[in-house]
Amino acid sequence: MDKELPRRLRVAAEAHRPDRARILARVERGMAEGGPAARVVRPPRTATPWLRVAGATAAVCGVLAAGAFAVASAGGGGPRGDRVAAPPSSSGTTSSSGTTSATGTTDTTGAPAAPGGALRTEDGPLWTDGAVDPHSNAYWAQSNVTLRTTEPLSSLAVELRIARTGGVTSTGSWRSLPERDFTVSVSEDGGFLVYRWALKPGRTVPAGTHTFAGQYNHAEGERDASGDYLTAHAVRASGQRASVGDRFGPAR
């Protein structure tokens, strides 16, 4: 080995002067090309719990905001008005000063009134009677309309009005005459549950005694039927008209 080599290497090292400009240029070029100098430095492991807390907080805030938005969208800012309107009355109207009955009689106390106050149970060949069926009980009742005619009828309309005292809701109706001969409806009008039977055009009601009945639930106990009434309007075969009516009382 050349004994002078170590000395020469030491002298060369001492004489070397690094080219700083060239080194900086290489570093900048490496960063621009995505080299090691351009790598993102991750935070120390001790910072990880804080990042997790921050992330969880942000997630909770997002859930709360989404929930608030959903509630506001579903609620519309207030309670919904899911109310069903009662069918309009075909024979009477209601004003702020009182209630108008089927024939226009107004009671300023707010209680529906029967037409003309008094009802006539007999008119020519037509006669009627209204009574609560004796098989009614503390929760359910049936109101019977008995109609008798000594002549055939070419037109007939029977209306049974049950005052809407506590818990009154319809459970059905029937009539002794053929079902196919009548149009039947049940509605709420002016504080009454109203059953209507109307003879169809071209049909006739024979002479005899006939029954129409409305059934309904009511609040527990003995129900006061004194506010209930019926009316019947008919046209005789001769073309003459007849009208009758009656008020209800206790079951009998």
Rank of each mutant, 00 (worst) to 15 (best):
H218G: 11
M31R: 12
V168R: 07
E179Q: 09
G221Y: 01
S173K: 03
V41H: 05
R196V: 15
T103N: 10
A70C: 00
P36L: 12
Q240C: 00
T146M: 06
R42W: 09
V168G: 08
E159C: 08
A58F: 06
A65E: 04
H135S: 15
N144C: 02
V184E: 13
Q240M: 02
A242D: 08
E122C: 08
D181W: 02
Q240L: 11
D19Y: 07
G249A: 11
V27N: 03
T150V: 05
R42V: 03
R26P: 00
T171V: 13
S101V: 06
S176F: 13
L177T: 13
V158E: 10
I23C: 00
G30A: 12
R7E: 15
F192D: 15
Q215V: 00
I162R: 10
A74L: 14
D129K: 01
P134H: 08
P6W: 00
S238G: 14
R203H: 08
P36Y: 05
I162E: 12
T169G: 07
S89L: 04
M31W: 07
G81R: 03
G124K: 09
A12I: 01
Y139V: 05
M31D: 14
P88W: 03
L160D: 15
G55Y: 06
T231E: 14
R148A: 14
I162K: 10
S176D: 11
L160S: 14
A114Q: 08
T109L: 10
A66N: 05
P112C: 09
T105K: 02
D246I: 11
S96Y: 13
V11N: 10
R8D: 12
P152C: 03
S173R: 04
T103F: 12
G75Q: 11
P206A: 04
G104K: 08
S243Q: 11
N137W: 06
S143N: 13
R42M: 07
D189R: 12
G167T: 06
G67P: 01
T108M: 07
V186Y: 04
D19F: 03
D246Y: 06
T150R: 06
L177I: 06
R203E: 14
G245C: 06
H210E: 02
A131I: 04
R148P: 00
G117Q: 02
T109H: 04
A251M: 09
G245A: 07
P43N: 06
S89Q: 00
R8A: 13
G55E: 12
F248T: 11
A66T: 10
T99C: 01
N217W: 13
W140S: 15
G191P: 13
I23Y: 11
P134G: 05
F192E: 14
S173M: 04
R148E: 13
G78I: 01
A219P: 00
G124I: 01
V11Q: 10
A21E: 15
M31P: 02
T93L: 06
A163P: 02
G34L: 09
V205N: 05
T211P: 00
A114F: 01
T165H: 12
F248G: 12
S136W: 08
R29E: 14
D189A: 15
T103E: 13
G208S: 09
A141M: 02
Q215R: 14
A58N: 06
